[in-house]
C-alpha cells in the first residue's frame, strides 16, 4: 500500500505530469528519427545540432523572442547550413558540423554569460529541467511528433531508398537533397522541442541509443521503425518516474536506462549469435 502510494506520488504535481508527457512523446519521436540517424551515420549531426540549437535558445532569450521561434529558426538554418557545407567533400561532414555547431554553442554560452541572469539557466539548458516544462511544450512536442510520423509514413519509400543507396535513388528521380533537408529539419525540430526536458548535452544519446538497441533485435527496416520508438518512449517514461524517486536528474536517469537497455540487448544478441555459430559448427 505504501509502495503504491509512493509510485503515484509525483503524479500529484502538475510539472511532473507535463514533464512526463513531453518526455514520453519526445522519447518516441527521437526513437523514430534515430533510426535514420544511426543508419545514415548521422549521430554526430544530432550531437552537433543540439549544440547549435543551444546558441539559438540563448540568443532568443537575450533578444526576448519566443524560444520556439528563435531557436527553431536558428536550428533549421544550422541544419541546412550543415547539409550545404557537408556536400563540399574537401572539408568533410564531420568538420563542417564541428565548425557550424560549436561556434553556435560558444556564441550561446557567451551570450548567456554576458546577458543571462544566472548560471542556473545555463544548467537548465545544458542538462534539461522538468520544472521548466509548460503546457505549450506539450503542444509543441505533440505537433512535431505528428509531423515526424507523417514525414516517415508518407516519405517511407524515398527515405528508405535515399538512406540505403543515395546515388541510385538520385538516378531514380528521388530528390535526395530535399529528402535529406527534410530529415535534418525534422531532427532540428525534435531537438528543439525536447531540449527543455533532456537538455543540450544528452539529447543526442536519445537519438542514438534506442535506435541502436532496436537495430540489434531486427534485420527489418519497417520493424525497426516501431521497435525503436517504443524503446525510446518506455525508457523516457520509466526514467522520469525513477528520477523522481531516486532524486536524480531526469535526463541522466533516462539516458542511463537507455544505456542499460543497450547493454542488455548487446549481451543477449551476442549470446544468441554465439549459439547460432555453435549450432552451425556442428553441421
Amino acid at each position: 500500500m505504501i509502495l503504491a502510494l509512493d509510485i503515484f506520488e509525483p503524479y500529484g504535481f502538475q510539472f511532473f505530469r507535463n514533464g512526463l508527457i513531453v518526455a514520453t512523446i519526445a522519447g518516441a519521436l527521437c526513437g523514430l528519427l534515430g533510426v535514420f540517424v544511426i543508419l545514415r551515420g548521422m549521430s554526430y549531426i544530432g550531437h552537433g545540432l543540439s549544440h547549435a540549437v543551444f546558441g539559438g535558445a540563448a540568443a532568443s532569450a537575450v533578444m526576448k523572442i519566443n524560444y520556439f521561434l528563435g531557436a527553431g529558426i536558428w536550428g533549421v538554418v544550422s541544419g541546412l547550413l550543415i547539409a550545404r557545407v557537408a556536400r563540399r567533400r574537401v572539408i568533410g561532414a564531420d568538420a563542417a558540423i564541428g565548425v557550424v555547431t560549436t561556434a553556435s554553442f560558444a556564441l550561446g554560452l557567451a551570450l548567456m554569460n554576458r546577458y543571462g541572469q544566472a548560471s542556473k539557466s545555463i544548467e537548465a539548458v545544458l542538462f534539461g529541467s522538468v520544472l521548466g516544462v509548460k503546457v505549450a511544450d506539450i503542444y509543441a512536442v505533440t505537433l512535431v511528433a505528428i509531423l515526424g510520423l507523417a514525414v516517415v509514413v508518407l516519405g517511407y519509400r524515398k527515405l528508405l531508398f535515399s538512406t540505403f543507396d543515395r546515388d541510385v535513388a538520385q538516378v531514380s528521380n528521388v530528390r535526395v537533397s530535399l529528402v535529406e533537408a527534410v530529415l535534418l529539419a525534422m531532427i532540428s525540430l525534435t531537438i528543439l522541442v525536447t531540449m527543455r526536458v533532456i537538455g543540450t548535452l544528452l539529447i543526442s544519446a536519445l537519438l542514438v541509443i534506442p535506435a541502436a538497441s532496436a537495430r540489434m533485435t531486427t534485420n527489418s527496416f519497417s520493424r525497426l521503425l516501431w521497435v525503436s520508438p517504443i524503446i525510446g518512449a518506455v525508457t523516457c517514461f520509466v526514467g522520469m518516474n525513477l528520477s523522481y524517486h531516486l532524486d536524480t536528474s531526469a535526463s541522466a536517469t533516462i539516458i542511463l536506462l537507455d544505456a542499460l537497455v543497450f547493454v542488455s540487448v548487446y549481451g543477449f544478441a551476442g549470446v544468441r549469435n554465439r549459439t547460432k555459430m555453435a549450432s552451425l559448427g556442428h553441421l
Binding site: V153, L154, G155, Y156, R157, K158, L160, F161, S162, F164, D165, V168, A169, S172, N173, V174, S222
Partner: peptide, 10 residues
C-alpha cells in the same frame, strides 16, 4: 525501391 518516386504507400 526503384518505385520510390511514383508510390508513397509504405
Amino acid at each position: 525501391m526503384t518505385r520510390a518516386k511514383t508510390k508513397w504507400w509504405p
